[in-house]
Amino acid sequence: MKPTEPVPGGPCWVELGTPDVQAAQTFYASLFGWRCETDPRPEAGGCTTARLGEDAVAAFSPLYRPEQRPAWTVSFATEDADATAGAVRSAGGTVLMGPMDVFDQGRFAVAADPSGAVFSLWQARAFRGAGRLNDAGALGWAELRTSDPRGALAFYPSVFDWTVSSSAHFTHWGADGADFGGMKVQDDDERAEAPPHWLPYFTVSDTEATAARALTAGGEPLAPPTHIPGGPWVAVLRDPQGARFGIHTP
């Protein structure tokens, strides 16, 4: 079973920081059918919401620092952002920003685990998070790519009270009785190119066809469409601005 709406400790939102918000909107809309709306308020900083129908599913924002990499950031739901930020620090992580209020929408913080993988915390108020999860075009999986699996296994369950189920090849994360993501150890090539990070996977009806559209639209394949025995079809791509993301067909 996978979550269909945000639950405490689970992924609730995903946001892309990119040097070209308009180009990113065009690229991802061609893949997922998103309709994009930019918040006109100056204090919103150019943040754009992507929707499926009327449901918000993701966001785009410009890069705020010259050294910032184009990247997707996964947000995890919490009932108390300040307490969870404290748990991040106690477990050896770093709070990079906040906690801070975002209008009347919620309370927000940006954090990093001890290996440097960045994620966000979201305490909902008027805005709960993604209106859809695990639907076509919506976030369907969140995977930690890390060089320190032992550290991650100590850190995340202590911060979020996640359940963990591990095999010789893969670790699954769970919240509220449902698996929402996993952990994969970075190989040497990935480690040389990208620091530890959270990789969002978006659900699609046909992984091979969506990967082909991504390439036509200027994306780059990092891992070609592959069928996991007994599991989904998956692929990992890089968008034209350099951000990594995954797609999967359950």
Rank of each mutant, 00 (worst) to 15 (best):
Q22R: 15
A87C: 02
P232H: 06
L144A: 07
R41L: 15
P40I: 07
A211G: 05
L139E: 09
S158F: 00
D148H: 06
T94W: 01
E193D: 14
G98L: 04
I247E: 07
E43C: 08
K2R: 15
G10E: 05
P3W: 04
V102I: 15
L121P: 02
P225W: 01
P3K: 09
T171S: 02
L16H: 09
T4V: 12
A50Y: 02
E67W: 10
R150L: 03
D39K: 10
M100H: 09
G9Y: 05
D80W: 05
C36Q: 05
D101E: 15
F155G: 08
T146C: 06
D148K: 05
T18E: 05
G218N: 10
Y156T: 08
R51G: 00
G17W: 01
A175W: 08
P8I: 10
A168W: 02
P42L: 11
T73V: 14
H227N: 11
D104A: 14
V102D: 06
A24M: 09
G242F: 07
S147I: 11
A178T: 11
E79D: 15
R145Q: 15
I228F: 10
S61Q: 13
L63E: 05
V7Q: 12
D179P: 03
T203F: 01
A91N: 08
G231N: 08
G9C: 09
F27Y: 13
G230V: 10
S61R: 14
G10Y: 05
T18L: 06
G129H: 08
T78S: 06
G45R: 12
P62E: 09
L96K: 11
P149W: 00
F60I: 01
D148A: 12
G92V: 04
F76S: 04
G181P: 09
S115P: 04
A209Y: 01
F155S: 09
F103P: 01
P240E: 01
S75P: 01
V7L: 13
A217L: 04
V88C: 03
A87I: 00
M97R: 12
P3V: 09
G151D: 02
S165N: 13
G98A: 07
W198C: 08
G218W: 05
E67S: 14
L153E: 11
A217E: 07
F60S: 01
D239W: 04
A136Y: 07
A175Q: 11
A109M: 03
E220H: 14
V88Q: 02
V234T: 14
T38W: 05
G177T: 07
G10T: 06
F32Y: 10
P114S: 05
T210P: 03
G17M: 12
P42M: 11
T26M: 02
R35I: 09
A152G: 01
W34V: 07
T226Q: 05
V21P: 10
A77E: 15
M183A: 07
W141D: 08
V164T: 11
R145T: 11
T73S: 12
P200F: 04
V234R: 07
E193G: 14
G46R: 10
Q186P: 11
V204A: 04
Y64R: 15
D179Q: 13
L31S: 10
L133R: 08
E37R: 11
V102C: 08
C12V: 11
A87V: 00
W13D: 10
S167E: 03
A178M: 13
A83T: 13
